[in-house]
Amino acid sequence: MNQNEIAEILAKPYSQQLLNGSTPARLAYDGLDGDPRVIPIGFWMEGDKLVMATVPKSAKVAALRKNRKVALTIDTSAFPPKVLLLRGTTEVELVQGIPEGYLTAGRKVMTEDQYPGWLEGVKALYSEMVVLTVTLTWAKLLDFETTLPKSVEDLINAQQES
């Protein structure tokens, strides 16, 4: 999949709702032991890249230094579901301080009353963070209105041909 195709998918209204909404991404990666992991994680977009930040000594940082490939999903639980599926390659960078995007991502998931206390705790805790920047290599939006999983499309087509 090329970058123009990915950009088209990310520009769709449902994709934009998911990318800018309060739902965390679910990040899938291979742990150092080779077993898969999936974790919820806050994120933000910088241009066409999906970005996250975390504790420098977290297990995911060590694993992503070894195997940079990831998959992510951002989805809703309402019916019909809206699901943005993403794959990419991660760059791992240690930075001083707290990335502004991390603070923006935090604001997306909490109330105005919760944010000041969270911000105070974050500033007291982190002197440095690791920024995980995902260059997307594949994207698919399933909105169950205009797009469906391929297997469902195939089943519908097979039934219509019968």
Rank of each mutant, 00 (worst) to 15 (best):
A62T: 13
A25M: 15
L18T: 04
D33Q: 09
Q16H: 00
R68N: 14
E161S: 14
Q16F: 00
W118L: 14
V70P: 12
K123M: 09
M52V: 04
K123N: 08
Y102G: 03
A158K: 14
M1D: 10
V134W: 01
Q96S: 12
E8T: 15
L64A: 05
V152E: 11
A28Y: 01
A78T: 13
I9Q: 09
P81R: 13
T111W: 00
P80N: 11
V130Q: 06
P40W: 10
L141K: 04
A28E: 09
Y14R: 11
M129L: 04
R68T: 11
G97E: 09
S162D: 14
Q96R: 05
L32M: 09
Q16L: 02
A25T: 13
E120N: 05
R26H: 14
K123Y: 15
V83D: 08
G121V: 07
G21Q: 06
R65H: 07
V92P: 01
W44E: 01
L84Y: 01
W138A: 09
L19Y: 07
T89H: 08
V130S: 03
N20H: 07
L27D: 06
M129C: 09
P99A: 08
S162A: 12
P99N: 07
A59H: 08
P99S: 08
S151N: 10
V130L: 06
T135S: 10
V38C: 03
V55A: 15
L103T: 11
K108N: 10
I9T: 15
D113S: 10
Q159K: 14
E5F: 01
M1G: 14
V70S: 12
G31D: 11
D48Y: 05
W118R: 13
T76S: 09
D48F: 05
T137Q: 10
V152I: 15
K82E: 10
V83F: 02
G117P: 01
R37P: 01
V38R: 00
S77Q: 11
A28M: 11
D113F: 00
P80F: 03
D143I: 06
V51L: 04
N4D: 10
L94N: 15
G34L: 01
V38H: 00
D30Q: 06
S22R: 07
T146W: 00
I39P: 00
P13F: 03
P99F: 04
T146D: 15
N2R: 07
D33W: 05
M129W: 02
A105M: 08
W118Y: 13
A139Y: 00
D154K: 14
